[in-house]
């Protein structure tokens, strides 16, 4: 049975919230609110996330890993190169002086952290992404879009719910 995509645009978050909660409570065949519902908004809106339910964000783990790798890599590189640079002595200091090395370790700690966080962001947020099947430029302007994927049969039902909550516009497209 083929799938269809529906995109409904709303004027404000309250309406969108109402739609989402109704969709979630509804029992439409071939539609699972957790997987087949995507809310698109022009601004970051914590409430949307709230009413969509907790979805753990994993970027922090990238951060931790990146920072630690960066720091460790830096210290190994620095201390290792000092020890192997023909052991050149410098102004009465040890060959591998810890305090100055920590400065660069710190910098690389941050560098690793930032780089890998950004990498993690791209991975977690699924970027760069191809265009989703239905997209409206209105979403980046001032409207909230609700994109659902459902089986052919339930389209009418969904449309009904969308219109009920004063959808400004409803787009439909065949899915893959």
């Amino acid at each position: 049975m083929s799938k269809r995509y529906l995109l409904a645009l709303y004027n404000n978050f309250d309406e969108a919230e109402a739609v989402v909660s109704e969709l979630r409570n509804s029992d439409i065949k071939g539609f699972d609110a957790a997987d087949d519902l995507v809310v698109k908004s022009p601004i970051e809106h914590p409430e949307v996330e709230e009413f969509l339910g907790e979805k753990p964000v994993k970027v922090q783990w990238f951060t931790l890993g990146g920072a630690l790798t960066g720091g460790l890599l830096a210290f190994t590189l620095i201390a290792g190169s000092q020890a192997s640079f023909y052991s050149q002595m410098k102004g009465g200091k040890p060959i591998v002086p810890i305090p100055p090395d920590l400065v660069l370790t710190y910098e690389m700690f941050i560098l690793g952290g930032v780089y890998i966080t950004v990498l993690g962001f791209l991975i977690c947020a699924g970027l760069p992404a191809r265009r989703s099947p239905l997209y409206s430029a209105k979403v980046s302007e001032d409207q909230i879009g609700i994109l659902v994927k459902a089986e052919d049969g339930s389209v009418a039902k969904l449309r009904e719910i969308f219109t009920k909550h004063k959808a400004l516009e409803i787009q439909e497209e065949a899915g893959r």
Binding site: T76, L77, A79, G80, S81, A83, S84, S87, V96
Partner: peptide, 8 residues
Amino acid sequence: SVSNLLEN
């Protein structure tokens, strides 16, 4: 470098 580090 690592072996040198350990050695030195």
